[in-house]
Amino acid sequence: MNTVNKAHKLIVTIVKKGQAKKVVKVSKRAGAEGGTIILGRGTGVHENKSFLGIPIIPEKEIILTLVGSDISNRVLSAIEEEANLCCPGTGLAMVINTKTITGIAHLLGINTYINEWTEVKSCMENQAVLYDLIVSIVNKGDADEVVEASKKSGAEGGTIISGRGTGIHEQAKLFNIPIEPEKDIVLTLIDREKTAHVLKKIDEDAGLNQPGKGIAFVLEVEKTIGINHILNRMVNEKFSDNDA
């Protein structure tokens, strides 16, 4: 098995349906090899829409882009500009460190990136707030409980992805044919100070302490863009507290 241990970053971009191809295209122009697009759904504070009193859950596209550390800022800045992520409600992106990679043997020992490129600073590059990504994998239909639990404990919302898989408590069969239960994966970006509280609430409300209900884990996020409204609110709250 060929593995790459040199530093790579995973850029996770969440945008409205129809925007993913543009994100992949601009990422490739900035030096990325490509991207993987996943369909999902989810709501944020700027997307609480309804029709005849029935809540509408916007469809989302999630793009996974693996890049070398030397071009991660360049690719992230290109994504930010193309998707206009500095504007509330357009989407968000986050950068996550990778430890070891396999399946990209063509990159072994080869560095074809242009280091002389002048990097455009992201509007969030110097952010003071640290974030985590909570990944919850639950049975299909339970995602709303995870999102609601997250929002109750301080999260802005969540993005839901459909999947399938089995655990040791889910080895069901029909006519001796294994059944792979459908799953919901929920991505929740959260201020690191609130991570433990949100995770505890998800565990309680979604019943993850029960066998076969699901799991949740936390990934450390290195950088984010597209969440200016959160930082602006925190600054306003801080000044309000100081004035008081």
Rank of each mutant, 00 (worst) to 15 (best):
V129H: 11
H169D: 06
G165A: 04
K238Q: 13
N236T: 14
I202S: 00
Q127F: 14
T195W: 02
V75R: 06
L219F: 07
D191R: 09
I185M: 09
N176D: 14
K49E: 13
V15R: 03
S240K: 15
S150R: 04
H197E: 09
E182S: 12
Q19Y: 14
K22T: 12
S50H: 06
K17C: 04
A155F: 00
T98W: 11
I134M: 04
P55G: 05
K201H: 04
I230Q: 05
L219I: 05
P55R: 02
K213Y: 06
V12Y: 03
N126Y: 00
D70A: 11
I38L: 06
T36C: 07
L208A: 04
I38N: 03
A20M: 00
K25E: 15
K21S: 09
G158H: 01
L66Y: 09
D205T: 11
A32R: 03
G158Y: 00
R233Y: 09
G157E: 06
K6Y: 12
L10I: 08
I137P: 03
C123W: 09
L130E: 15
D205E: 15
H46V: 02
R41Q: 09
S153F: 12
N242T: 12
E204V: 06
D142I: 11
H197A: 10
H8S: 04
E116T: 08
I101L: 14
K49H: 07
D184G: 07
V186Y: 03
L64K: 00
I185Y: 05
V146W: 07
L66D: 09
K99V: 08
D142W: 11
A105S: 15
N139A: 10
S162R: 15
V75T: 07
H8P: 04
I63M: 02
E237L: 15
L107G: 12
K9L: 06
N126D: 11
S150F: 04
G207P: 00
E156M: 10
H169Q: 11
N84L: 04
V235E: 15
S162E: 08
E180N: 13
E59H: 01
T36N: 10
V12R: 03
L66C: 06
N73R: 14
F217H: 02
P88F: 05
S240D: 13
I110S: 12
K16G: 08
L39F: 12
I104T: 13
A172V: 14
I11F: 06
S240E: 13
D142Y: 14
H197S: 09
H229E: 13
D243R: 15
L219A: 03
T98N: 06
I225C: 04
K238S: 07
I179F: 14
T112A: 15
P178W: 08
I37Y: 01
V45H: 07
G40C: 02
E222L: 08
C123S: 15
A78E: 10
E204G: 04
K60A: 02
I190S: 00
G226V: 06
T65S: 05
L208D: 07
G207D: 04
M234A: 14
E156N: 12
V120H: 14
I114T: 14
M94H: 07
S162Q: 10
I110K: 11
L130S: 13
I168N: 07
T188K: 02
N111E: 07
I96K: 04
H229P: 08
T195E: 01
V120D: 12
K151C: 14
L189R: 01
H106S: 15
M124W: 09
V186R: 00
A105Q: 14
K17H: 08
I11P: 02
F175P: 07
K213W: 08
R233K: 11
N48H: 11
T224S: 03
